[in-house]
């Protein structure tokens, strides 16, 4: 497995990176941690003439935690897990990041790469939808912000234009209970099914609930109806069943080596039920 040749660029600033993208159009691709892109390049499933490495761009790094959380796109999974302030503010992130790949991959794999490449197997996109994060994109005409829930069209197809770079992720500081429940065959595998839940409660009743599912469609799925089914309830069996039923309306899994559609739909319901229970227990 040997990659094809490419011209390598390592810009120091976002404008420099954008200039390379503008110049080379669809022949150029940005690389962050590379752990999705490089295996694909090694199998020659994609041809990239110009590789734009973002590692030297200081503006793509950094985590700031306030009422709004801002995470630089080049922040690694390892950094997400070990950043004390972030773990306290958004514990769901670390819980999920620990279930991504393995230690070596987490040292290099970035949140930006994970959300931007549009791989439906990635965990962060669903999580970002659950947390109602927004993606800050820089392009030749300026910067714009897109809600995660509006970002994904299909497998590897997103709102990001080819000449744009994801620079940061922003999200409101969440509160309440949370859980990321993932079933996988082994460490390093994508999810058979995974569910992210973040909820708040007032007087023992759910006030707000957000539910997102991973690897159960060609895009991550934020199920507004599933969340709505929980609001006002104490997450008893009836409410959970309603949320699961609503979620099952929103997903569309395909068969693969992990199993057939029927199995995935069943497991999706199970992991969501467990995620809801754990999130509720953490309220």
């Amino acid at each position: 497995m040997i990659p094809n040749t490419f011209e390598y660029h390592r810009p120091k600033t976002i404008p420099d990176a954008l200039a390379v993208l503008t110049q080379h159009g669809d022949e150029a691709r940005v690389i962050a941690g590379g752990h999705s892109l490089i295996p694909v390049m090694k199998q020659r499933l994609t041809d990239i003439a110009h590789l734009v490495d973002l590692q030297d761009i200081a503006d793509l790094r950094g985590i700031s935690v306030g009422d709004t959380i801002r995470i630089g796109a080049m922040t690694t999974q390892h950094a997400l897990i070990t950043h004390a302030g972030l773990s306290a503010a958004v514990p769901l992130l670390a819980e999920a990041a620990l279930q991504i790949a393995d230690p070596q991959v987490r040292y290099l794999g970035t949140i930006g790469g994970n959300v931007a490449n549009g791989d439906p197997g990635n965990d962060m996109p669903g999580l970002m939808m659950c947390l109602d994060a927004a993606f800050v994109l820089s392009g030749p005409t300026g910067t714009r912000t897109i809600a995660a829930r509006d970002f994904y069209f299909g497998a590897y197809s997103t709102e990001r234009a080819e000449d744009e770079i994801l620079v940061a992720i922003e999200m409101p500081r969440p509160s309440g209970g949370y859980a990321y429940e993932k079933q996988k065959r082994k460490i390093g595998d994508y999810a058979t099914a995974a569910a992210a839940v973040q909820m708040t409660a007032v007087a023992g009743r759910v006030a707000t609930a957000s539910v997102a599912m991973t690897n159960l469609s060609d895009v991550p799925v934020w199920s507004a109806a599933a969340g709505a089914a929980l609001v006002g309830t104490d997450c008893g069996p009836v409410a959970v069943n309603a949320a699961v039923a609503a979620m099952l309306e929103d997903i569309n899994p395909g068969a693969d080596n992990r199993g057939p559609v029927e199995f995935k739909r069943h497991v999706a319901g199970v992991v969501l039920g467990r995620a809801i229970a754990r999130a509720f227990s953490r309220l």
Binding site: R185, T192, G259, P260, E262, F263, H266, V267
Partner: peptide, 16 residues
């Protein structure tokens, strides 16, 4: 006996 095949046993035995 991966997850889905074990699940299938349970499913076919009516345990779901």
């Amino acid at each position: 006996h991966d997850h889905w095949r074990i699940w299938r046993i349970a499913n076919q035995l009516g345990l779901h």
